[in-house]
């Protein structure tokens, strides 16, 4: 297993170099997973190999507290996740701007990094994600409160096992534990935010939503405020875009990276 010390955090990283010849430098795409039940496996078994096969230098990693990266008891404000990624890029000696693919909370990290370090980011690809504005912190507080109250109850876990299968039940129980043993619930709602006018995001943004997820309501907001934005809304789809609509997500992002790459991608 590949662990890289990024800042003070032992970070589990899987890098897939391009498997085809590339003219010039291969574009680097960093994949950022979501909160609680998620890990880099969500990309490793979906988009990762296809991107490497298309000539992309693929970086996937486990966020702090998740997967096989370190799980400190405290320090889960969004800016800590952003700093972790900067430290990881530094440790891997990746200095040129990268494309950030972020799923759900991972997309908020991508926006946060684009705002804090515009020189490190070529484009942001946000899958079912919100920028870290003040209203986002309120919704995160509500969602995390609900998750902690529900996922720490055996009856709820049993219900999930019956209705969603044992795998999801096990992940849900682990998510409940994560909220009990860390200060994530307290930290995320007090994260640094960016201004509602999104002026801090200056790079091009591709935003992908499921039409039936509440998050797709952001489309007009993104299109009015972001200086360069393309939105894709998948019909008949909820929040699990990456897992349930993998092929369409892959094609949309690969096309986007090709359009925005300095080197040519196969």
């Amino acid at each position: 297993m590949t662990k890289i010390l990024a800042g003070d955090l032992d970070t589990h990283v899987q890098r897939l170099p391009p498997t085809v010849p590339v003219d010039g430098e291969a574009p680097v795409v960093v994949f950022i997973h979501g909160l609680l039940t998620d890990s880099l496996a969500s990309y490793y078994f979906t988009l990762g190999p296809a991107f490497a096969a298309a000539g992309v230098d693929v970086v996937m990693y486990d966020l702090r507290g998740h997967g096989k990266s370190d799980r400190p008891a405290t320090g889960y404000q969004l800016e800590r996740f952003v700093a972790d990624l900067v430290a990881l890029l530094d440790a891997m000696e990746i200095t040129r701007p990268v494309h950030l693919v972020g799923n759900s909370f991972g997309g908020s990290i991508a926006f946060g990094l684009a705002a804090a370090h515009p020189d490190r980011v070529a484009t942001v690809i946000a899958i079912e994600a919100e920028p870290p504005v003040r209203a986002w912190t309120v919704r995160m507080a509500e969602g995390l409160d609900l998750a902690k109250s529900q996922l720490t109850q055996d009856a709820v876990i049993d219900w999930i096992a019956v209705n969603n299968g044992r795998h999801t039940a096990r992940l849900s129980r682990a998510a409940g534990r994560l909220l009990q043993v860390t200060s994530m619930l307290e930290d995320i709602p007090v994260s640094d935010t960016i201004s509602d006018d999104l002026s801090a995001i200056r790079c091009p943004v591709l935003a992908i939503f499921g039409a039936d997820s509440g998050l797709s309501r952001q489309v007009p907001y993104f299109e009015s405020y972001l200086s360069s934005c393309r939105t894709v809304v998948l019909p008949d789809q909820g929040h699990s875009v990456l897992i349930e609509r993998t092929d369409e997500t892959r094609d949309a992002i690969l096309g986007w990276v090709r359009d925005h790459a300095l080197g040519r991608v196969g």
């Binding site: 297993m1 590949t2 899987q14 890990s39 880099l40 496996a41 969500s42 490793y44 078994f45 486990d62 997967g67 096989k68 795998h167 096990r170 992940l171 682990a174």
Partner: peptide, 10 residues
């Protein structure tokens, strides 16, 4: 879990 299969793959 799926993350363990990532380790196994490596």
């Amino acid at each position: 879990e799926s993350i363990d299969l990532v380790s196994l793959s490596a």
